[in-house]
Each structure stands twice: as C-alpha cells, then as structure tokens.
C-alpha cells in the first residue's frame, strides 16, 4: 500500500505544471463553461475543445493515453446516459420502418457522451499537472475573498494541507494494522462480502484511536512552534503570476470565443 500515489499527479517540469495553480483551477472552470456553451448538435464546438485538450497535453508533456484513461472512471455513467438517450428520445425519424430507435436519440446520445467526456478530460488535465499541495494552495488563494465574510480561510487551508500530509502516514498505518490482524487470524480474503466488511472493523477502530493520538501529539507540536491561528501570521510561499499564466488565460479565452463562433457555423439538425 506504500506505493499508492495519491490522486493522479504526473510530475514533470512542463510549462503547464509551472502555471499558478489558482489560475489553473480558474481556467479549468472556464474550459468547462466552454464545453457547456456548445449548443446542442453543433459538434464542431467539441472538436475545438478536443483540440484544446490535445494541445495542452502536448505542452504539458503528458502521455496522451494517461489523459484518455481518465474517462474509464466514469465509463459506466457515460454508457448509461447514452443508452437512456437512445431508448427514450423519440425525436427525428425512426432508424428503420416501425423501429424504436430514432435518429434524434442517437444524435443526442452522441452529444451527451461527448459533453461528459470533454469535461472529464479537462478536469483530469488539472489533476494530472497539479500536485495536491499546489491544488490546496490554489484553493486557498481563490477562497481569500471569503475572508470578508469572516470565513476562516487560513484554518481551512491548514486543515486541507494537514489532511494531505497525513494520507500516506495513515495508509502505512492501515497496512500495519491489517498485517497485525492477519497474524491474529483475521480473514480479509473471504468471498463473503459481509464477512469481509466485518473484518474491517478491527482495522478501523485501532486506526481511529491512533489518529486521535496523532492529532493530540500534532497539536502539541504545533503549539510548541508558536501556532496561534491566522493572527499576525506571515506566509512564506506566495503564489506568483507569470507570462505563462497570461498566455494560458488568453488561449482559454480563445477557446470560448471559438466555441461561440462555431455554434453558428454548422450544426446537425434532427
């Protein structure tokens, strides 16, 4: 369990990796907006989105199959929505005389599949090129305006980063407890799902208790290093904005304009 890499971060020194994480989050949102802007059946818009994905993947020096693979996680969902469209949507003309599948159903199924896939591709580009720590930094930065309504941004960010820090530690610990319980005859390989779930209880309870102990010690360590909340605190790492961020923003803006433009160019009619 030691090798479980958290998330799907793909480390590299590309220009995309170096972008400001806050900008990357914002641009991912902009990209998703672009996907939603594609009017029903104006498929050229998706082509523009796909080109965007391919270009970013190339600049980020990611293996293309890693990006495509991310669709697998939601494959079931994609297929399900396509099937529902095919059978339920009765617009257009039947595919054959008296048939139950209509052209409208097929086209809107394709539309939905493309829409979901494009969104997932964009989101996975973000997580592939941004480490969890950077993501947390980006989110903290974006949450800053909430300080005005007294939202504890610093505390929230600290909780996020401590959680990230302890994921590998707790995975290690889980592994150790599982081994200890196995040595005492616990059965984690039973075919019976109910039995297997029950076998997890003697793992989860020690894990829970030990994480409370850890939390206690961590609190002492933080206290002894003068932690007192966000008051009078300085910040060592500041997110910086560079030319790359501007170029990425312009590029994404170009995508949105392109999609809007293509919405009027060529659409499939039912």
């Amino acid at each position: 369990m030691r090798d479980v890499s958290f998330g799907q971060y793909y480390p590299s020194f590309s220009a995309v990796h170096k972008l400001n994480p806050a900008i990357k989050i914002l641009l991912s949102i902009a990209y998703i907006v672009a996907v939603f802007l594609v009017q029903p059946f104006y498929f050229l818009g998706f082509l523009a989105c796909f080109t965007y994905i391919v270009l970013v993947t190339a600049v980020a020096k990611l293996p293309f199959f890693r990006v495509i693979k991310s669709i697998r996680a939601i494959l079931f969902f994609v297929v399900l929505s396509a099937v529902i469209q095919v059978f339920v949507n009765k617009t257009g003309s039947p595919l054959w005389e008296g048939g139950f599948i209509y052209t409208g159903g097929l086209i809107s199924a394709a539309y939905i599949v493309l829409r979901i896939s494009m969104i997932v591709l964009g989101a996975s580009l973000l997580t592939l090129t941004t480490s969890p720590v950077e993501l947390a930094d980006g989110i903290e930065f974006l949450l800053y305006p909430l300080k005005l309504i007294k939202f504890p941004v610093h505390e929230f960010a600290l909780i996020m980063s401590i959680a990230l820090r302890f994921i590998p530690t707790l995975l290690d610990e889980t592994d150790r407890i599982i081994k200890a319980q196995k040595a005492r005859g616990a059965d984690f390989e039973s075919k019976n799902l109910f039995k297997r779930a029950k076998a997890m209880i003697p793992v989860l309870i020690p894990l829970l208790i030990s994480s409370f102990r850890r939390a206690d010690e961590l609190a002492d360590a933080m206290d002894s290093r003068c932690y007192s909340g966000s008051k009078n605190r300085t910040k060592y790492k500041k997110l910086t904005f560079g030319w790359g961020d501007l170029i990425a923003a312009l590029f994404t803006a170009g995508l949105i304009v392109g999609v809007v433009f293509l919405n009027g160019v060529y659409g499939v009619t039912v």
Binding site: V133, E217, R225, K235, Y236, K238
Partner: peptide
C-alpha cells in the same frame, strides 16, 4: 521541543514548508 514520533510533528508535505511553519507563526517577514 523535538518530540518522539517524527510523523506526528511534521505538518507540511514539503520540507521547506514545514520548517517555515514556526517562523510564519511568529510573523517573521518572508
């Protein structure tokens, strides 16, 4: 104070961020 369990006193996922934690708390300039 340096405590017993190293895992339970490091608070950041990157070494320099962890070392920065103390000085940040007392408001040392960047």
């Amino acid at each position: 104070v340096v405590f017993q369990n190293p895992d339970n006193q490091l608070i950041a996922s990157i070494v320099e961020d962890d070392i920065a934690f103390g000085p940040e708390n007392v408001g040392v300039p960047r």
